[in-house]
Every structure is written in structure tokens, then in C-alpha cells.
Design a protein around this nucleic acid. Structure first.
Length: 273
DNA sequence: CATCATACCTGTTCGC
DNA sequence: TGCGAACAGGTATGAT
């Protein structure tokens, strides 16, 4: 659920409220969800100012002065809310970080898959697992040629390829299915069978799907909300994700729901070849 | 190395 | 209506 567009939306929200604030306290209601690297302690962050907020794949990175970093991954049901300082604990609140200026960041997560890491800059990549991430879809290096080279020699199917974070960072189940529909390619096709035209179309479709998601402040299909607790609008623009057995918006054929790459996958048998 | 299956969780939906 | 099974999906891990 929270995929690149949802995380990007939250990061933009955080950029407008966190820089300049100083961390005052950290409280992990579920201790296993807060990981502190061995070379620092959480008290090192106290009174340190937030310099900037950024994103890498589906990771949220909060950069503090003195080269200290707080990294957050929402996994599937994670949510971040920035609110005024209050003592009330939110539903499924797992980690609470209080800042100066009456601000409080709450990390809520029904299923407890999400994580918060505290680390120095030096160990940031290895400690969080970000080191394994592939290219950013919106980096200038990610052009059609790069995409073609990524596919070269692989035998996996299109869906698995798109979901593999070590190749391209940020695509999840929603945008993978939508990208396949845009490019009229079945998700279970082998990438080795794609012709030049299809590769080109798939590349453009990935960018189009992610851009549209960001423009609409994310897809709220289950419980995704931005940092202010508001839902996105992209769910109104989905062609296939979550629409199994409903008519294709293009040809009215009932959409097929299957399992590919271990995920629920929806596509149109008529439109996608 | 590449690929695939499974575990991690818990609220929701489905089938009988 | 009630209850248990299946499902939801991002990623680390282990198996092949």
C-alpha cells in the first residue's frame, strides 16, 4: 500500500512542518519497531534540529543536525500523523516522537510490520537495508535505455520484475498492476518475451502511473492517509487494481483476478496480451 | 547470482 | 447469524 507516490506525499507534508523543529523525546510503545544502531543512542537526538526530509524508494528519511538520521518504513499498514502535542495515544500508535514547537509525530501501524531506525549517516544505508535498493524512477538516469538494460537477460515475469526493489525502487502492487494495464501487457508475461515496443510502453507506463499517483496525493484503498490524516484521490482513477470481476473500463470484459509473484493480481484478458 | 516460497502481523472479508 | 479460513501485501530470510 504505501508505495512511492504515497510515501512521496507524506515526505512533502513532513517537509513543510518538520524542518527547524528539535526532537524532544522518543517513546516506542512496541520496542521491536524502533531500531537504534550500536554507535549511537536515542538521547543523541535530543535537542537536535531537523534539517530536511527526503525519500529513497519507500523509505522516509529525516535528517537531523550532527549527521543523525531517523528513517521510517511504513511497510503495508504504517501511517504517520503529525499533530499538536497531546498526551492521547492514537489507535495502533507504535512509536511517538515529540518535537519542539508543540509538534508530535505518531507512527501508527496495525500490523506492526513497519519500522523506525535511528542511525548515523555512515551506517544509514546498511542499517536500514536501503543499500539494496535499485534506481529511483524519477532520477535523470532512469531513461528508456536504462530500463531496457535492467530487463536484459532476465527470465522472471513482468509483475515480479516491477515489484523487485533492488532493480527499481518504489513500485508496489497497485502501481505494478496499473502499469501493466496501461502498457497492455499481461503481468504474468516473461520479460524475455517483450518486444521493443512493449518495453518502451512499459517504461512510459511506470512513469505515468507513479506521476499520476503523486499528483493525486496517493491511493487510499485500505487505510492510507497523508501526514494530516487525509485520504488521497488516486483510488478513483484505478483501471484494474482492486477491480477483479468488474468490467474493464476500456472493453467491458470482466477483469481476471489471479495470483502472480505471490500477490493478488488483476488484469484484462482482452486488453492485455 | 537469480528466483521463488515463507514468515512476520492483525483486521476484514468470504464461505459454509 | 456465527465461526473459522482465507486474504490483504512489503520485505527479510532461507531454500533451490
Amino acid at each position: 500500500m504505501p508505495e512511492l507516490p504515497e510515501v512521496e506525499t507524506i515526505v512533502r507534508d513532513l517537509k513543510s512542518v518538520l524542518p527547524g523543529a528539535k526532537m524532544k523525546a522518543v517513546k516506542a510503545h512496541v520496542p521491536s519497531m524502533l531500531k537504534v544502531s550500536e554507535v549511537i543512542s536515542q538521547s543523541d537526538f535530543f535537542d537536535k534540529e531537523v534539517l530536511e526530509v527526503s525519500r529513497r524508494g519507500k523509505f522516509i528519511i529525516i535528517h537531523f543536525e550532527d549527521n543523525l538520521f531517523m528513517t521510517i518504513h511504513l511497510r503495508m499498514t504504517g501511517r504517520i500523523i503529525v499533530m499538536k502535542y497531546e498526551d492521547d495515544q492514537l489507535d495502533y500508535e507504535r512509536v511517538r516522537i515529540d518535537f519542539s514547537d508543540d509538534k508530535s509525530l505518531r507512527f501508527c501501524d496495525v500490523r506492526k510490520f513497519g519500522k523506525v531506525w535511528l542511525s548515523s549517516k555512515k551506517e544509514l544505508d546498511d542499517f536500514t537495508g536501503m543499500v539494496k535498493l535499485g534506481i529511483e524512477p524519477f532520477s535523470s538516469n532512469f531513461n528508456e535505455g536504462f530500463f531496457r538494460n535492467l530487463l536484459k537477460g532476465r527470465k522472471t515475469n513482468v509483475k515480479s520484475f516491477l515489484l523487485n526493489q533492488s532493480l527499481i525502487a518504489g513500485i508496489g502492487n497497485i502501481y505494478a498492476d496499473e502499469s501493466c494495464f496501461y502498457s497492455k501487457i499481461r503481468p504474468d508475461r516473461s520479460v524475455a518475451d517483450l518486444d521493443e515496443n512493449e518495453i518502451s510502453l512499459l517504461y512510459k507506463s511506470v512513469i505515468r502511473a507513479l506521476e499520476q499517483g503523486i499528483r493525486n496525493r496517493g491511493t487510499s484503498v485500505s487505510n492510507y492517509q497523508d501526514a494530516y490524516g487525509k485520504t488521497g484521490k488516486n483510488q478513483e482513477l484505478l483501471y484494474v487494481y482492486g477491480r477483479g470481476n468488474k468490467p474493464c473500463m476500456n472493453c467491458k470484459t470482466l477483469l481476471t483476478k489471479t495470483r502472480t509473484a505471490g500477490r493478488g493480481t488483476v488484469y484484462c484478458e482482452n486488453c492485455q496480451k
